[in-house]
Simulated scan of single mutants.
Amino acid sequence: MDRIRVYTGGVASCNGYLFKTKDNTYVAVDAPSGFADWIYSKKPDIIITDLLITHQHFDHVEDACRMRQIFDCRIHAGQPYNENLTLEKMARDAWGLPLNVQPFVVDEVLTSDIHTANWGGLLWHLHQVPGHSADSIVYDLPDEGIMFTGDVIFAGSIGRTDLPGGNLRLLKKGIETKVLNQPATTMIFPGHGPYTTVKNELLTNPFIS
């Protein structure tokens, strides 16, 4: 889709998305390492109104603070910033990753009673899908036929559930009731790897029952 640009960066090759709105501003989804400087190097005059965080694992928020500093965008997430959600300390201690996530302020906490939002002049539907992380949110644009799923579902796979806050039963239930019940042509833009469609995952994803 011409209105979406993707950047992939950081130690976990995380996707950050730029979505162009109808008024020529942008909404960003997730903030992997290097995302802010990549955007600025290509579009220094860009207006990014909002940054949507799918969940706060370190690879999705390493550049959240820098995005705010450079673009003065509002940050939206399922919970306030929390070091326990970023898993930064675990990643450093257990995996030896040289991480330093700068704390950031979540301007709007998207609680479970918030089902829709208007960002960039577009109506977004919000689906809470815990199981990979307790704060996971899927950002759905039904009028555009696209979803940003973070680490809930990937092309041919689903998010891992062996990390703190993981729950396979909850994750699979959320995928079935909030992602794969969308129109078959809906495009899925995940936190890692290539985009896919609801139809393709229903037909080929081995984790879908």
Rank of each mutant, 00 (worst) to 15 (best):
L99Y: 09
L99H: 02
L99Q: 00
L99D: 01
N100Y: 11
V101W: 05
V101M: 04
P103Q: 09
F104W: 08
V106D: 10
V106E: 07
V106A: 06
E108R: 07
D113H: 08
D113L: 04
I114Y: 08
H115A: 03
T116Q: 04
A117E: 11
A117K: 12
N118P: 00
W119K: 09
G120K: 09
G121R: 11
G121T: 10
L123N: 13
W124C: 03
Q128N: 13
V129P: 00
V129Y: 01
P130C: 11
P130D: 04
G131K: 10
G131Y: 10
G131N: 12
H132A: 09
H132P: 09
S133E: 14
S133V: 05
D135V: 05
S136A: 13
I137S: 02
I137G: 01
V138N: 01
V138L: 05
Y139W: 15
L141P: 00
L141Y: 05
L141T: 05
P142H: 15
P142E: 15
P142N: 14
E144S: 13
E144D: 13
I146R: 09
M147I: 12
F148D: 04
T149N: 05
T149Y: 03
G150Y: 13
G150N: 13
G150L: 05
G150W: 09
G150V: 06
G150Q: 08
V152G: 02
A155E: 08
A155G: 02
A155T: 01
S157R: 08
I158Q: 00
I158M: 01
I158T: 02
G159P: 04
G159N: 04
R160G: 15
R160P: 01
T161Y: 12
T161L: 04
L163C: 10
P164T: 11
G165S: 13
N167G: 07
L168T: 06
R169D: 13
L170I: 01
L171V: 02
K172D: 07
K172N: 12
K173T: 08
G174K: 05
I175K: 02
I175M: 05
E176H: 12
E176V: 10
L180Q: 11
L180Y: 08
N181R: 14
Q182V: 01
P183E: 14
P183C: 15
M187P: 00
M187W: 08
I188R: 04
I188C: 09
I188N: 03
F189S: 05
F189M: 14
P190N: 09
G191M: 06
H192F: 03
G193C: 06
G193V: 03
P194S: 04
Y195Q: 09
T196H: 06
T196E: 04
T197S: 11
V198I: 14
K199W: 08
K199F: 14
K199C: 06
